[in-house]
Simulated assay, not measured.
Amino acid sequence: MSKLTNMAGRKQFDVDEALRRAMHVFWRWGYSEASIDRLTEGTGLGRGSLYGTFGDKNTLFRKSLQRYAQTYHPLYDQALSGPHSNPSAVVAAYLQVTLNRIADPAVPDGCLLTVSATQLPALDTESQALVHAMIDGLRAMLEQALRAAGTGEQEAAELALCTLATNKSLAVLSRAGFSSDDLATVAAATARRSG
């Protein structure tokens, strides 16, 4: 809940909560459709407060992506920390984090990073670089966990890429209305084939 109070004639608000809400606007609509009107409505802030606190739309978008990474990437890191007995266990643990996020009714369907990647041409250079860096970070995290589970370097690289692709596919399928059972089936089949 946004904390708006009137002190000394000035409105005060919870900046972190406003950023969380902005993140959800970008997550739901994607960068292209996240208009300033939608961002002000979603955050509960006027244009002046929005710009004064977060800068322009590109800056707010990058801050939202960073907030997303700070929220979810540690969950992947924790799931991958193991120890895992084999590659299948690594893949299953990683994709379970994705399924848990998708099942959370408090957040939009899909994945902010995935929808951002699909709109890469609409992003400025700095935002494009951030999207690539976040995806590369997840891929490296997977490769490291797969190697720790005894997978060879080449196979770990291939499995990491395939697992990342499955992760992004799950996000797209969830936005398309596929059931949680369907998504769990995709994740389980991917994990089995990684053994």
Rank of each mutant, 00 (worst) to 15 (best):
Asp56Gln: 10
Ala160Met: 09
Ser127Gly: 07
Thr163Pro: 04
Tyr68Thr: 00
Ser194Asp: 03
Ser35Val: 09
Cys111Trp: 01
Asp136Lys: 14
His73Pro: 01
Tyr68His: 10
Glu153Phe: 11
Gly48Leu: 06
Gly150Cys: 15
Met141Tyr: 10
Met1Asn: 12
Val25Gly: 09
Gly48Lys: 04
Leu45His: 06
Leu161Gly: 11
Leu50Arg: 01
Gln66Tyr: 01
Met7His: 15
Pro83Gln: 06
Tyr51Cys: 03
Met134Thr: 12
Tyr76Asn: 03
Thr125Leu: 15
Gln128Met: 14
Thr163Asn: 06
Asn100Tyr: 00
Met23Glu: 03
Met7Lys: 11
Ala188Glu: 04
Leu142Cys: 10
Val115Met: 09
Leu159Arg: 08
Val115Asn: 10
Ala133Tyr: 09
Thr59Val: 08
Ala117Leu: 13
Leu164Phe: 12
Ala160Asp: 02
Arg139Ala: 07
Leu146Ile: 08
Thr53Trp: 01
Leu75Gln: 13
Pro105Ala: 07
Ser32Tyr: 11
Tyr76Ile: 02
Gly55Phe: 05
Gln154Ala: 12
Gly30Cys: 08
Gly9Ile: 10
Ala187Arg: 01
Arg28Glu: 08
Gln154Thr: 13
Thr114Lys: 02
Thr185Met: 12
Ala89Cys: 08
Arg147Glu: 02
Tyr51Asn: 15
Gly48Asp: 03
Leu159Glu: 00
Gly42Cys: 05
Thr114Glu: 13
Gly46Met: 04
Arg101Phe: 05
Gly9Phe: 01
Ser179Met: 03
Ser35Asp: 13
Ala165Trp: 06
Ala189Phe: 10
Gln144Tyr: 08
Met141Glu: 04
Thr118Val: 12
Tyr72Asp: 02
Cys162Gln: 10
Ala92Met: 07
Asp109Lys: 14
Gln70Ala: 15
Val15Thr: 14
Gln70Thr: 06
Ala106Leu: 11
Tyr72Met: 06
Asn6Thr: 14
Ala145Val: 05
Met1Lys: 05
Ser179Phe: 14
Phe61Ile: 14
Thr114Ile: 10
